[in-house]
Write a protein that binds this DNA or RNA. Structure first.
Lengths: 336, 336
DNA sequence: CTGAAAGCGCTTACAG
DNA sequence: CTGAAAGCGCTTACAG
């Protein structure tokens, strides 16, 4: 690996000037800059991040904490973070905290404290007080995606509004016997996404003057299979349901498959709407409220990088966008 | 952040001894070690990776190059790499090379050369000569997953054997009109997985004395939707087919859905088998040849870490395991 | 087994 | 605008 000294020698300047020319910090004459750039390029020189970060305190690396890697939503967010980070020359190092308590402690107690990263993005992670404190103690920009957090800068989508939009859309199609697939309490810790979506669902019904029947809600686990089972229970117990709002696209897809298995036509017999913007949505013709997870990741990355560039304090981020995407799984209520 | 000096002071030893005690390198008396460990723990001291790596040349960080993040197979491999790496105290930094040629060049020309990682794992990436050379020039352990590479240590599954296993299983169920969903040439660069699976398919048919009809092969793109379309074409053109071997689980799932839409029963009217071990396989009752992608990631991580621990030269890795997982999508050929 | 000290390869006040 | 030099926080021969 060529070092800064070789570049300095070839360019006929000091290493200080090489450093300035390459980093863009400090003054360098145009001619010196040119010679440095040419020399660096000739030699294939790349600044050593270990030396640079020790000297400067900057790593140009962002830590990303995720709870899962193999669920579509999280990989989409991660793709966004990665793309935005690379665009600005940042690396990302990944901390998959899994469900193992020890691994998780280790991440907060050790991994994140190695001074390997300049900032942290926590994706849809329910942080306890201790973990939050450790994050704050890092003394670096920390951004959370997914749910308001009292002590952290957070990118959140307004889950209630999302659910209202989905539900209201079903109502606008004439539906009133609308069931909801939510998630069991185990999935409701932290940002309480299921609760909030359920609340939005109920608010939309109430606003339309539709009486709420608790039986209309079934709990699942955010998977296709769980959605499938929940939809089956719904169809068993209330054959009169004409529409289902599922709290995730995976569950909505499960519901579509459950309906088909019973010979129900979607949307003629049953309208189904989900939430997320899942890649399989188009294939299944699923109407959904898209949350643009890729863009969520990009925004989080851009936000921390902006903070690192010293662009002032953390701006309170505007709520994340969402959008109704109408496809074939929803239609006007059957009029028989 | 507390530094090594504070630990040394509290433990009543030199920083050299702290370093030795914490890293496990070199001799330290039991009593000194104990005091150091206690002091470090009291102070919440974590070795600064930037200082440590500059001094030692070791980063305890592995670079992982992936072509996609949001396809299940890759996230499963990545999960495995992450789990194995964390278990050994390693971080991983992620390079998602996407399809943008410039991003890709940047990864090989700059990102990987920052001295941020001790080793590199390339997951299912078709590397050209130049990229291979750059990887080799890094002078660190490099392991590739997915397909033999003449110049790189590679973890590969024997794709032909995988396809033979799947096909032979269908034959053992009495099928002889077996169609195959492969992938178009665009997906056949690099490790040529589609070609190799197709070859295995054809070999198995030949071995069983079954005549091959080129019309029995349709090309898709490794997605559910592509598999769906390909299966539809197969069912149009050869209604006599009793079984389909799809070169991936996603495509096999698409095929199952296509069959159902036509009112065909799976497996009574049509047996379908895939390859991968996709998480949705169980839900769809898909028979598949599982490739254990999670374990592939773990093995690659363990391999590079072993090399980094100086456990001798790279052992030629044994071929990756695969296994037939029989579920409900395959059955004996219909006897009408 | 232990410590003093050099050195890892940069960055950045500081002086000019 | 530029360079000499200190310093970032560790690790590791080296000497004892």
């Amino acid at each position: 690996m060529t070092s800064i000294d070789e570049v300095a020698r070839l360019a006929g300047v000091s290493t200080a000037t090489v450093s300035r020319a390459l980093s863009g910090r400090g003054q360098v004459s145009a001619s010196a800059r040119e010679r440095v750039l040419a020399a660096a390029s000739d030699l294939g020189y790349v600044v050593s991040s270990r030396a640079s970060s020790l000297a400067s305190g900057r790593t140009r690396n962002i830590g990303v904490i995720v709870p899962f890697l193999d669920r579509w939503f999280f990989s989409a967010v991660l793709s966004g973070v990665s793309a935005a980070a690379m665009r600005q020359g940042y690396d990302i190092t990944l901390y998959n905290i899994t469900t193992d308590r020890d691994v998780r402690r280790e991440v907060f107690d050790t991994f994140l404290r190695r001074q390997r990263v300049d900032a942290v993005i926590a994706v849809s992670i329910k942080l306890d007080d201790d973990e939050t404190q450790r994050l704050l103690d890092l003394g670096m920009p920390v951004v959370a995606i997914g749910g308001p957090h009292p002590r952290l800068e957070t990118f959140t989508v307004d889950e209630e509004a999302v659910a209202q939009l989905a539900t209201t859309y079903l109502i606008s199609l004439g539906h009133s016997d609308i069931a909801h697939i939510s998630a069991s309490p185990a999935f409701d810790t932290g940002f309480r996404v299921p609760s909030r979506r359920r609340a939005g669902f109920e608010q939309a019904l109430a606003a339309a003057g539709i009486a709420q029947d608790p039986a209309l809600i079934e709990l699942a686990d955010f998977t296709v299979e769980g959605g499938h089972r929940a939809a089956a229970r719904i169809l068993d117990r209330m054959p009169g349901a004409t529409a289902i709002f599922a709290a995730s696209d995976e569950m909505a897809i499960g519901a579509i498959l459950a309906a088909r298995e019973r010979g129900l036509r979607v949307p003629e017999d049953l309208s189904i709407i989900g939430v997320d913007g899942h890649e399989l949505g188009a294939f299944f013709g699923l109407t959904t409220v898209d949350q643009f997870p890729l863009r969520q990741g990009e925004r989080a990355a851009d936000a921390v990088i902006r903070q690192l560039s010293g662009a002032g304090a953390a701006a309170v981020p505007s709520p994340l966008p969402f959008e109704l995407t109408v496809r074939g799984s929803t239609g006007r209520v059957r009029s028989d």
